[in-house]
């Protein structure tokens, strides 16, 4: 596969390490009353969709950016690649 890195352009997927569901960005609030339940969901429960999926890829053999790659798990088509940091900011992790 070829991943179109937002900073470096198209790179072979062999340069990356895969970590799976990008929901790992949404780490729950450890002080919430429901923290125990929230962290259980966060640590253990993943969707495994046949289709579009936001995934975390680490450019380990490159610039060490974490990316959020929107990939179709059936066709391997990739329609969007973002810096995970930008995604994290957009999801309100800028505190």
């Amino acid at each position: 596969m070829i991943i179109d890195h937002p900073l470096l352009g198209p790179r072979d997927s062999a340069e990356f390490t895969y970590m799976g569901d990008a929901k790992l960005i949404d780490r729950p609030d450890p002080d919430a009353a429901t923290a125990a339940r929230d962290f259980y969901d966060y640590a253990y429960l993943r969707d495994n969709p046949a289709g579009w999926h936001d995934e975390l890829w680490f450019h380990e053999q490159g610039d060490r950016s974490w990316l959020v790659v929107t990939r179709n798990t059936i066709t391997h088509e990739i329609r969007q690649v973002r810096l995970a940091r930008d995604v994290a900011r957009a999801r309100g992790r800028s505190t």
Binding site: I25, F58, R85, A88, R93, T95
Partner: peptide, 13 residues
């Protein structure tokens, strides 16, 4: 890799 994940994905700023 984990440290970069925490830095970029959990504490981006």
């Amino acid at each position: 890799r984990h440290m970069e994940f925490v830095r970029q994905c959990l504490a981006p700023d």
